[in-house]
Amino acid sequence: MLTEIVSWVAVGLIFVTATTMLIINRDWRISLGALALQYTAVFWLVTLHLPFVMGSAKLITGWMVVATMGMTRLGISTTDDDAEEFSLLHGGWYRLILMSIVALVTFGATTRIETIIPGMGLPVIAGGILLIGAGVVHLGVTSDLLRVILALLTVLSGFEILYAAVESSMLVAGFLSVVSLGMGLVGSYLLLAGSSPSETESE
């Protein structure tokens, strides 16, 4: 019972962090903080089907990704990257509606998927679908590089939750962690690309 309650709390945390990243992230630090929290929820849902050690590996990988991207972003001067400013007045309501649709779809689809794939668990399905939906919506509304990477990481997290329930191979878990870490590194590289000459000039 307690596990069930904590699992639903994790789903709630996923909803809050995904919404934060999508709607009220005026500051990249808040987005990365939300992503770090999101990985905690992902860790909990993944460990419902995978051993604790494998879940921990995913959590550590996620936090490494956050750290890598955070350190990279810290080193970049704030210029046009913040042009895509978020607020409720500037498309925020639209994003909020999109996120509500994702939540509604998750609400409707979770029990159906549980019928098709019994044993997965409602919180696992809800968490996975919510993350995939939020990630896809995020990809649809942004062209900012950092946010694209955050959205892809969100999609991957959602997929990892669902796939952990059907495939417990250590190789797959390892590969998925490598993919997440690689995504963080690629994101950091892309963030750095093109910003180096200006730094050299200022030096």
Binding site: V179, L190, L192, A193, G194
Partner: peptide, 20 residues
């Protein structure tokens, strides 16, 4: 998964560090 990893390795080749 391996194809995805290979695709990610292509990125540094496609974008030189001096180019946005």
């Amino acid at each position: 998964l391996l194809i995805e990893m290979a695709a990610m390795l292509v990125i540094p080749l496609l974008v030189p560090i001096y180019q946005k």
